[in-house]
């Protein structure tokens, strides 16, 4: 089924009255996900956003609670404010990444209220990629440029209209108001088929990487891999699945707040203990951590590789340290026999 963009836009604008809508917007630094009020603000034709939409669910810097001491009284206030939200135009890689973040923040054992509340109150409208960047490799990571996994509603851009697929009950509820659906023409169906069958040109082989990494903790492979890395967090901050954070106190006189801030394994400050000891004080240990966390530990703990092949880390790296080459390197590394 399809809906014209004109009709869709009207429904979108009407939704804005009840929902906070986060959508791709063209701004100075590139396309990013921001709150919008109208469909006309949405950027239609772009490869992928510069930064992933994860900061909506998991902000880079977030006040968890605030406190104030007056005399002997201490007041503590939690800062969680959640609006019903629509996340619009979410690419398959980022929708899948949210499913991975769910495994960390809203699993059976533990529910992070900040993440969980936002996630639970949001509807994901995914959108297929009509164009595929040469550094995208999602087809190798169990998804594809048109996979609807993780979306509540999934759209395929047909030019003047969208093909609409309602995936979940949440999506169905949001779509209830839309009455203007019509059948696809034969040409449009052909376009949908083309978009759905598209694969990324760039590919990696992760079939056996987890098992290989099981045996690679002490591999000499890690000795040189990291050498050109500048230890910045351009890769981890642009990654839709990286989720390490740090909790600190920001105190001024008799009041303060407990804040959660993104951390990243590339920086020397990562895992620095209060004692001064740092179990990962060398770039070698940090790069091993990055690869192990994504392709080994996360798989053992959560059953999935924590990389969706969005290619953002490749584009943002100032020294062109390409994770696809690192994956190849792991695959080709010789195992050291004791």
């Amino acid at each position: 089924m399809k809906i014209s963009k004109e009709k869709f836009g009207q429904a979108f604008d009407a939704l804005a009255a009840d929902y906070q809508i986060i959508a791709p917007v063209s701004e100075a630094g590139g396309v990013n996900y921001l709150a919008v009020k109208s469909f006309s603000e949405v950027k239609q034709d772009y490869l992928n956003s510069k930064l992933p939409p994860k900061s909506f669910l998991f902000p880079q810097h977030e006040k968890l609670l605030t406190y104030k001491k007056e005399g002997k009284d201490v007041t503590v206030k939690t800062e969680l404010q959640v609006e019903k939200s629509v996340l619009f135009g979410i690419r398959p890689c980022d929708a899948k990444a949210m499913l991975l973040l769910d495994k960390v923040f809203k699993n059976d054992e533990y529910r992070d209220p900040y993440y969980y509340e936002r996630r639970d109150n949001s509807v994901v409208i995914g959108q297929a990629c009509n164009k595929i960047s040469p550094s995208c490799f999602c087809s190798s990571m169990g998804i594809s440029p048109a996979s609807s996994e993780g979306s509540d509603i999934f759209l395929i851009d047909l030019g003047d209209s969208y093909q609409v697929e309602v995936i979940t009950e949440k999506g169905k509820a949001l779509m209830a108001g839309l009455q203007e659906l019509s059948e696809l023409s034969a040409d449009e169906q052909a376009l949908v088929d083309t978009i759905k069958s598209a694969q990324t040109s760039s590919k990696v082989d992760v079939a056996t990487i987890t098992a290989k990494l099981d045996k690679m903790f002490d591999s000499p492979f890690w000795d040189s891999l990291h050498e050109k890395c500048l230890s910045c967090n351009a890769c981890t901050f642009s990654c839709p699945t990286c989720h390490c954070f740090d909790i600190s106190e920001e105190v001024h006189k008799n009041e303060g707040s407990r804040v959660r801030t993104w951390d990243g394994c590339m920086a020397p400050l990562f895992t620095l203990h209060g004692s001064g000891h740092n179990p990962r004080d060398k770039k070698k240990a940090r790069w091993r951590q990055r690869m192990m966390h994504k392709f080994n530990y996360f798989v053992h703990n959560n059953g999935d590789i924590a990389c969706v092949g969005c290619g953002r880390c490749i584009k943002s790296c100032p020294v062109n340290l390409d994770i696809r080459q690192v994956i190849d390197g792991v695959n080709n590394a010789e195992l050291v026999v004791d």
């Binding site: 930064l51 500048l230 910045c232 967090n233 351009a234 981890t236 901050f237 990243g264 943002s316 100032p318």
Partner: peptide
């Protein structure tokens, strides 16, 4: 985004 790529 304070990734510190510039500094590094």
């Amino acid at each position: 985004i304070r990734c510190y790529a510039c500094r590094n």
